[in-house]
Design a protein around this nucleic acid. Structure first.
Length: 109
DNA sequence: CTCTTGACTGAGG
DNA sequence: GCCTCAGCCAAGA
């Protein structure tokens, strides 16, 4: 693994791991923190490799608090249940009180 | 190098 | 509120 390869994907995992319990963030927010503000899609794409790692991908949602990535989880509502187990209310694939649970790495770190 | 694919986002109808 | 379009950028074929 060359140092140059230690970039996007790994950084995404690092940030994801730093998400506090009971909080969520958006792909775009992570992208901004990584210096790739326009690469929100890449963040999500990177999450594809988050499997097998201790990356809480369920804490990463789109900017509207919508669980757009839930289809990548095993069950139909696994992602939602994981979030609810952390005290986050999710209704119809959308996070409630998003402002209260939102965590922006570019501001919190 | 070119083309396709996205777990995105914002603007417009 | 819903749907569509366009811009964005990295990785893989």
């Amino acid at each position: 693994m060359k140092p140059e390869t230690l970039n996007f994907f790994d950084k995404v995992y690092e940030v994801a791991k730093l998400i506090p319990f009971g909080r969520v963030t958006s792909y775009g927010a992570i992208g901004v923190y990584l210096g790739a503000a326009r690469s929100a899609r890449m963040v999500g794409y990177a999450m594809n490799g988050s499997h097998g790692k201790d990356v809480p991908a369920h804490r990463v949602v789109n900017k509207k608090g919508l669980l757009t990535g839930k289809h990548h989880f095993a069950g139909t509502n696994l992602m939602q249940q994981l979030l609810e187990s952390e005290g986050i209310i999710v209704i119809n694939n959308q996070i409630q009180d998003l402002e209260k649970v939102y965590w922006d790495p570019s501001k919190e770190l």
